[in-house]
Computed example of a mutant assay.
Amino acid sequence: MSTVVVDELGARLKTYEGRAAAVAGSGKDPVNEPMIRHWCEAMGDTSPAYAGPDAVAPPTMLQAWTMGGLSGHTGRTGAYDELFDLLDAAGCTSVVATDCEQEYLRPLRPGDEVTFDAVIESVSDRKTTKLGTGYFVTTRMDVRVGPDLVGTHRFRILKYAPARRKEEGKGEGKGTRARRPRPVVNRDNAGFWEGVERRQLLIQRCTDCGTLRHPWLPGCNACGGLDWDTVEASGEGTVHSYVVMHHPPFPAFDPPYAVGLIELAEGVRIVSNVVGVPFDKVRIGLPVRLEFRRYDEPQGPGDEDGPLVLPVFRVQEGRVQEGREGGVG
């Protein structure tokens, strides 16, 4: 005799598919040159297409023109909040963004005023992941200028109930420490992580124009070239910006700790931990030096995850006073 498990929560969540999350929302600002400049500086994108009298906005800024900030949008409906309330009440109190997809139909230019509609496109069946059990929720936003559809943005999150940590006795009865999240390795970044395993920090270099880039991408954002090789970073850098993480707590980490945007001597930037000084001594402009650390040593037979090697940046001894304050979150 078979047993049919009915997911009553999932059935209720499915009723939200197709419901509007925002109707006739308006961007708070027209497409404008200062935001384009700030975006390009943050991304290190020097393409001439994004400057000058004929400038267009970088396509990946599509969502930026629709963001409501802390005050939100007048076009927002209550459907998304109702959906989240149902999930929270069922214990799915944690959320993680999993991926987004964008489709671009025409470039946005300074002066364009965007409007948008958003819909809850789909809610998955109940899924169990390493993080916990919950539901994937996908929202689709259609972005327009006047009557013309200029782009579509799909954003997917996992709303889940956190999995309980396994507390298996080891040695003198102590529980095992939570593992650090493993990086998502794919065909575009596999070479980077292979280099890290060898204690090398590799930077992609376009073989057409010589532009260095990080993080790793399938194509050059300066000339569009698809061919590349790598150069090894010297390991010297400075703290370009940073935040101090206090919340939310995560079992594998001990807040507060500093996360820095490190500008390497080669001119590209990488996000990593800043070590060697207390979190409240980290400053913009501090000289740092690359080192590699091993985390999560095997706990014994049957341990599924091997050790994890990560690049971190140590503040050079005696150089703490060289930076300037700012960037603390």
Rank of each mutant, 00 (worst) to 15 (best):
P215R: 03
K28F: 14
L308F: 11
F253D: 09
V119W: 15
E291A: 03
R319F: 11
C223H: 01
T139Q: 15
W228R: 10
G260N: 03
F155I: 01
W228L: 05
P48D: 09
G225E: 00
G195V: 01
A51D: 13
S71K: 11
V56Q: 08
L13T: 03
P183S: 14
E263H: 01
K28H: 15
G78P: 00
D142M: 02
D142S: 07
D7P: 06
M43N: 10
L149K: 08
V96M: 11
G224K: 01
V23K: 15
R180P: 14
V259C: 13
Q204S: 01
T3S: 07
G195E: 08
V23T: 10
M61T: 11
P147C: 05
H246A: 07
A79G: 01
V145W: 09
L149V: 09
E101P: 00
H38E: 14
L308C: 04
S94P: 01
S272H: 07
G237F: 07
Y257P: 06
L202H: 05
R177G: 13
W65C: 08
E291L: 06
H214Q: 05
R144G: 14
C220M: 03
A57N: 09
V185E: 11
L264I: 05
A265W: 01
W216C: 09
L158A: 12
A163W: 06
R144Y: 13
C223V: 01
V31P: 15
